[in-house]
Each structure stands twice: as structure tokens, then as C-alpha cells.
Amino acid sequence: MTTPPRLEVLNLTRAFDGAPVVDNVSFQVQAGQVACLLGPSGCGKSTTLRMIAGVDMQDSGQIFVDGKLICDTDFRVPPERRAIGLMFQDFALFPHLAVRDNVAFGLAGGFKANRDRVTELLDRVHMSAHIDSFPHELSGGEQQRVALARALAPRPRVLLMDEPFSGLDERLRDGIRDETLALLKEEGTAVLLVTHEPHEAMRMADQILLMRKGNIVQQGAPYNLYNAPVDRLAAGFFSDINVLDGTVQGALTDTPFGQFLTPGMPEGAQVDIVIRPQHLKLDFDRAGQGPAPTVENGTAARAKVTRARYLGRESLVEFATDQGNITLNATVPGVFLPPAGTPMWLMLRRDRVFVFPRV
């Protein structure tokens, strides 16, 4: 017998004043899996989360937990009985309760009746020493750990997390995210995380649900979304991109890097050829008019440096191509700061390039 997904959402829709905010959204999250609703502000991520939590009502669609219907337009399990935990960016700890009582808040009988569960979770989030402290005595990172322990205390089947790390200093985020992920995996909780930060989604998620204007435009493993984006906007959401525009002529499109095959595109169609900065390789054109270097499965374009900046782990070099004076950016590991006007060859492999119809 097939085990049902821990969380299943089918054809969920929600509109405000006649304008669709969530439009026919469907997905599944398995036990122990972290799924991420990723997209820009206003795309419908938090509204989707609120409907699953039960604090907002969908216009149509169904929500299941472990194969059991918890909500449709006729039937609705109250939020407190859905076995769904919530964790938000402001942590929402009760300022008048000590850490132990915050963690025990959702448990019948409070701290005395649930001492073992509370102390176990505080130990696992490295907060045992603060069991009698109050929220105002804790740092942001410590409050986040307490909020996580409180969310997990009732053993929810599903945990919903809405931008839970955005209030933390950047230097704290990576460590706390990793600790949080490890604990959630141990608990076997299905996690639905909302964020607008691609780096956070790539770091935490087993699957990413990329949202735009109320729709899921692409979903899958982070590797697949990054390396096989569905369109130009999806490619640009995960990293900076260079875009060459062109017109299809005889299934080919002319660029400074030569002609690109654009099979399946109609004659005269406008296309965008997308290149990530890290996929451009550089070589000095010392003679200024030297022969183009040989590139495996690709071609080279002559260009001149317009600006170079050091960004810490890498350098960003901006170019203008000799053909068409097109601006392109390349990233180079470490320090690489050629002066403006330096002639160089830009090289790329065609299998690292995306071609999309222009929209």
C-alpha cells in the first residue's frame, strides 16, 4: 500500500477583490522533506501558507494531511486540530513567559506535565542553559532556537515556516539554518518553507516550488531548477544573467559568439540567449587582433574591459563586445582586476547556454 504524502495541496485558489492571488496551486510534501515556496514578494507564497494553516479560507481546492482531508470549501478542520505547526520571522515568543513555558505553551498541562519533552528540545537546540530566561534576555539567534523548539514541541505532522531567518544577522543565518534543518530531519516533520531568497531555498530545500503571480511555474530539486530553468525569469531568479537578444533565421540566431541553433523556434521569432556570468571564460587578446582561441563545444567573442570590481570571493568584470557593443558580465574566482580597455576574448560552451522565446 502506497504511503500518502504528509501534506498534499490540490488546485488551491484564492482571490481578493476579484484579483487572483493564488491560482490553481498543487503540490505534495513527504514526511521528512523540506519544500520551499520561492518567489518575489506578492506572488502568493504567504497566502498559500495561511490557507494551509487554516487562518485563511481558500475559494476552491483541497488540503490533505497524511491522506486525510482537512479543508475544502465545505469541510474545515480548525487550525488547532490540523497537527500543523507555525514558525514566523518575528518568532512571536510571549514576553511574560520564561523559555520553558514558551516551549510548553501548546502542550496540555504546561511545563510540569511535559518537563521531559521541553528539556529534550531545549537541549537539542542548545538552549538548556536559558530554560529560566525571558525572551528579552536572549539574542535574535537564541530566540529563533526557542521558537523552533516551541513549534516542534507538539510533534506537528507539518511545519510551516514563513521567512523564519530574515530577522537574523547574515553571519548567524547559515549556522542556524543548518541546525534547524538537522533537527527537522530528525523529527521526520514535513516542512513547507516560504522565502524570497534563492540562496536560502537552494541551501535548505529538497524541492523548490517557484511561484510567480499566484502560479507555480516550476517545481523540482534545486539542481534541476538551477540547471534547467523553465524560462528567462526563472533563470534570472537564481543568479545574475547576461541576455543576448536575436532573431531566428533558418533555425539559427546570430550573436557575437557566432550562430546558435534554435530548433523548434519559428522563422523570425525573437529569442533571448541567456548566459550566467560564471560560465563566461576569459583569455587575454594580447595582440589586440589575435586569432580566436579554440573552445570545446563553443566559440569566442572579442571584447574590452569596461570595469572590474573585487567582491570578496570573486571578481566581477564588465565588458563591451566589439561586435554590437553589447554589455556582458563575467565572474572570476579570487582577485582579477584588469584595467578598463584591456582587450580580451570571452568564451563559452554552448551546453551552458539557455535559449528562450522572448516574452
Rank of each mutant, 00 (worst) to 15 (best):
P229I: 05
M202W: 01
H126F: 02
Q259T: 14
G250T: 10
R145Q: 09
R115L: 06
I241G: 02
P164H: 06
I216Y: 03
L192C: 07
F165I: 03
E163H: 12
P222E: 00
L138D: 08
R177Q: 13
L209W: 14
A149S: 06
E170H: 14
L244Y: 09
T189S: 09
S139T: 15
S166Y: 13
R115E: 15
A129Y: 03
L181F: 04
E187V: 14
T119C: 09
G188Q: 04
Y226R: 01
L168D: 06
N242Q: 06
E137D: 07
L233Y: 11
H130Q: 09
A221T: 10
A201D: 03
M161P: 08
P135G: 14
P154A: 09
F237E: 00
L122N: 01
L184N: 00
E186F: 12
D116E: 14
E142F: 11
L168H: 06
M204L: 15
H136R: 12
S128I: 15
V191P: 08
L252P: 02
V217G: 11
Q259E: 14
L244C: 11
P229Q: 02
A129R: 05
E137S: 14
D162I: 04
G236I: 10
K213C: 08
R177C: 10
F165S: 03
G220Q: 13
L183M: 03
P164R: 09
S166W: 13
G141I: 12
A151T: 09
M211W: 03
R212M: 08
G175N: 15
E186Q: 15
L148T: 08
V194W: 04
V146D: 01
Q143A: 06
L181G: 00
G214T: 07
D132E: 13
T247I: 13
A153H: 04
R115A: 15
L210H: 10
M211P: 04
T119P: 00
